[in-house]
Write a protein that binds this DNA or RNA. Sequence first.
DNA 1: GTCTATAAAGCGATAGAC
DNA 2: GTCTATCGCTTTATAGAC
Lengths: 203, 203
Amino acid sequence: MVRISPPSRRTPKRDAILDAAQCSFLDLGYAATSMDLVASRAGVSKATIYAHFEGKEALFAAVVHRRCEREFLNADAWPEAADARTTLAAVGAHVLGVLIAADTLALYRVVVAEAARQPELAHAFWEAGPSRGRARITALFADLAGRGELAIADPWVAADQFVGMLRAEVFFRALLGLPPAEGREPAATVTAAVETMLTAYAP
Amino acid sequence: MVRISPPSRRTPKRDAILDAAQCSFLDLGYAATSMDLVASRAGVSKATIYAHFEGKEALFAAVVHRRCEREFLNADAWPEAADARTTLAAVGAHVLGVLIAADTLALYRVVVAEAARQPELAHAFWEAGPSRGRARITALFADLAGRGELAIADPWVAADQFVGMLRAEVFFRALLGLPPAEGREPAATVTAAVETMLTAYAP
DNA sequence: GTCTATAAAGCGATAGAC
DNA sequence: GTCTATCGCTTTATAGAC
C-alpha cells in the first residue's frame, strides 16, 4: 500500500518530523496521532511533512523501519560464549528486558494493531526486528549444541521455545499495561526458562 | 473510564448492535469503526445505539466482554484426564487452535492496541479471557503432578511455560498476518512443546 | 522546500418529535 | 425506545505564495 524505504536522504527537518512522529505514534497509537500534532511537535508545517512523505501511512512505515534499525545498532550488549546456564541466563535477561521495555511494548502495540490493514508494514517489521533476533538466538543454540553443552536436534525449535517461555505472562501483562502479578518477576521467568531448557536439552 | 457490564438486558436490537459492532471492531479496528457504520450494519439509527450504550468506548467494552464470555461457553471441548503426553497434546492443540483462530487474533490486535488508552478494558479483558484460560491449565498441571505423571514444583510456572511455548513464532506470524514459515506448522509446535515439558518435568 | 490558509469530508454525540 | 436531522469539531490532504 505504501513503500517502506523512500529516497530517505537525511535532513534536519526530516529527522525532526520522524522524531515527532515516532513519539506520537508510540504514545497515542496510529489513529489518535494527527498530522497536525506531528507538525506542531516537529516545529514544521503540515505541508512540509507531505513534501517528505507520501502520507500518514508512509510516515508510520518510516518510523517503524527506523525504530527497528536502531534496536540492532547497539548489538554490543550481546553476551560472550560461556557455559550453557550462564549464557542462557544472560541472553534471557537481555531479551526479556528488551521485550518489556516501554518503547518496545509501544511499538509492538501499534504495529500489531495496523498489521491487519498494512500487510507490507507487518512484513517489513518482522524482517527488520523479530526475525533478526530469532536468528541470533538460533545461532546461539546451534553453538551450544556444537560445543556439547546441550543436546539439540533443531536449534530453531529450541530458540522458539526459549523465546516463547520468556515472552509469557510477565510480558503479556506488561503489554496490556497491567501491574506484574505478585511474585512473578521477570527475573523469575528467566530463571525458570533457563532451568527448563537445561533439563529438557541436557546432553 | 467506562463501565463494562451495563444492565445488559438482551433485546433484538441490542443484539443486532453488538453483532454489528463486533464485526466492525474486529475487522477494521477501534478507530476506523464509526458509529454510523455500526448503525448502518445493525439496521438501526445511531441514536438507538446511544440509547443502549453510553458511547463508543462502552460499546467496545461490551463487545470484548461478550466475546470473552462466549469463548468459555463451549468448554465441553476440554479433554479428559489421561496420561501426561495424551493430555498435553490434546490441550496444546486446543489452545493453539483457539489462539490462532482469525477471530481470536482480531480481538487480540484490537484489545492490545487500545490497552494503553483504556486501562479498565485491558483489565476486564485479562480477567474475562486469558486469566481464566491460564487458571485451567494451571489446574491441569497441578492434577498431573498430583497423579505422579509429572514432577512439578509450581504448576503456575509450568502452565506459563507451556502456554509460552505454544504462543511462539507460529502464533506471532499469524498475529502479523504473515504466512506460516516452511515446515513450521502448528502441530509441530504443539508436539515439540509437549516433548519438552515431558522431558523437563519427568518424575 | 517551506510556509499560511483552506478545502472537503467524516467524526462522536445530541435535540426533539413520536 | 426509536427515529430524522443536525451541531460542532477534527481529520487528511492540498493550493498557491515565496
